[in-house]
Design a protein around this nucleic acid. Structure first.
Lengths: 331, 331
DNA sequence: TTGTAAGCGTTATCAC
DNA sequence: GTGATAACGCTTACAA
């Protein structure tokens, strides 16, 4: 006993399958009586349309596929929020997949997503090789978030990391800091832009740059600070590659008996929920995550509807959120 | 220019559609030569099977649907990790959906998931009314995670909150604490069990219970501590309803000039990544999240395969993770 | 306004 | 092994 089908509804309402189809899609050219009869029959049977059969028959899809490289990163949750709302507003369903940060699993996830023949897909910070992306783009509209690309078939939505890095530096300089180091994100996605922003801004202020190699984790942030301490080169301010790194840096500083922000100021990046905790209260650079999601959905839908053929390259403006980890330098 | 179909592959490989179908499904009764030819043709065309057509024709589904009430909660990310791995091992694809913590959106998300006619669904901490769940359960196997239910058609997987609450109390008592308060999670899912565990354990030790009503947020934890302070009733230890609440409590204590754990000990619940941060280093109760996910997938697959008809009720054992926020009471 | 019939891309059942 | 042919549940001309 499978779920009820359109045929069942038609029989019960005493009409043809085609008419039920019209009613289900809210067509205006159905008489009130028939419409009511069909709706009642559907109700009684607990019928709801079979999305796959529908898409197969209509050769169209109202599904947007989303592949997230890492479900653990709350950054993506907010991007998806924006994306989901926008997609639903436009009548599209969203299905999500995850690649678990591994290229191999991500590849499988992408294949799996494509097997549903969605109208388009958005890839959140994918780590698959570029070739996999371009082969997907040959089949359907693709939007890349938090990863740049020069592929002509692909739209991209990114935060302007250069501007964000500069924002952090400018803030510290305006507080009076002159010795400002950058805890670098290394291979991490987007870290290059943040570093460039830091370098450019430092140069612009005529200040000497100091880059400490690090990573996107709190342990790495703490390690970087200890290195600085050991070398006796502690600056008065730190621009961390992200919030996690910044929090690690703060705790290493405090363990060394220094006070933040009295002795050293620290700026994070991302404005995650972590930064907002009263216990942390981190000054940080905020990315418009919701907006990123909305823009990704919008871009994708434009492509899906064939409203645009040339690639769109969105670069969003970050903003600074000042909390309690920055202050003028000592003396 | 539609995506390539099985027909295209067949033509290019010079074989029939049926043969391509066999190859795609890895049937053993295909000659090596033909198999290779088909695979090459598929490769060249960038062909991958159409999941919906397949499922429609075979009257079966290899898709597991997952509805997450809140994508922002990292707890679910780990549950999904376990679930995803297990499902893929068994040859099932996983598609995820989110309800954004709102019953209305969640309802739509559930309907949307069901429209794909998945083999089964797992609902992660759903907030939809019980009726919606039972009507879904009438159509396909349903597993509930982090929400209990007496519905006969659904399996449940939960952490034993009573045991967890007791674990926290026992730990504090063994350190010598006698005045231990509970910061209650109120309406939050699972908070009832945690509270009962606290109450039972306190009674077991012959200690007076003290419950402070609170919520699953850091602001609520801080507020609860301030109330305790204002009433002049600060105990020597706090059992918080979750990690976020605990962190809020810690910061309020520190703002009041008290030291954790020297003056007051605090225990969280969930062992989120937040608790593990060196800057936080919270003693907390850990739930086996991965295991929860695996079990959910396993339960669902048993139902899908018709291996079991009666409902399964899994209750997993939490464990205590001791970090730096607990110590013997002063004096 | 309603019904008929021909697909959509795949699997499944048989003969060959 | 291989190849027709009939489903699967639905949409969509086209007819009525």
């Amino acid at each position: 006993m499978g779920r009820p089908t359109m045929e069942d509804v038609a029989r019960r309402a005493g009409v043809s399958r085609a008419l039920v189809s019209l009613v289900m899609r809210g067509s205006p050219k159905v008489s009130q009586t028939r419409r009511a009869a069909v709706q009642r029959a559907a109700q009684e049977l607990g019928y709801s349309p079979h999305a796959m059969a529908r898409s197969l028959a209509s050769r169209t899809s109202t599904v947007l596929g989303v592949m997230v490289s890492d479900l653990h990163n709350p950054f993506f949750a907010e991007v998806i929020d924006g994306l989901d709302v926008m997609a639903r507003e436009q009548g599209f369903d969203v299905i999500i997949n995850t690649g678990g940060r591994s290229p191999a699993r991500e590849r499988r996830a992408l294949t799996s997503l494509l097997s549903f023949r969605p109208a388009g897909v958005v890839l959140l910070s994918p780590v698959v090789p570029s070739a996999a992306i371009s082969s997907a783009a040959a089949q359907l509209p693709v939007v890349l978030v938090a990863r740049s690309s020069r592929l002509s078939g692909v739209d991209t939505v990114n935060d302007d990391g250069e501007q964000g890095g500069a924002l952090a530096v400018d803030h510290l300089v305006s507080l009076g800091h002159r010795r400002i180091a950058h805890l670098d994100g290394g291979e991490g996605s987007g870290s290059g832009a943040r570093r460039r922003g830091y370098l450019t801004a430092m140069a612009g202020h005529g200040l000497p740059a100091r880059i400490v190699s690090s990573e996107y984790t709190d342990a790495a942030g703490a390690r970087a600070v200890r290195e600085l301490l050991a070398a006796g080169e502690l600056p008065t301010a730190l621009v961390a590659c992200n919030d996690l790194n910044a929090v690690g840096a703060v705790s290493a500083l405090e363990e060394a008996g220094l006070r933040v922000p009295r002795d050293v100021s620290v700026v994070g990046y991302d404005n995650t929920a972590l930064a907002a905790l009263r216990h942390v209260s981190l000054t940080t650079v905020d990315q418009p995550r919701n907006e990123i999601g909305r823009l990704a959905a919008e871009s994708l839908l434009q492509r899906v509807r064939g409203e645009r053929a040339h690639p769109a390259r969105h670069l969003l403006h970050p903003s600074l959120v000042v909390r309690s980890t920055t202050a003028p330098p000592p003396d």
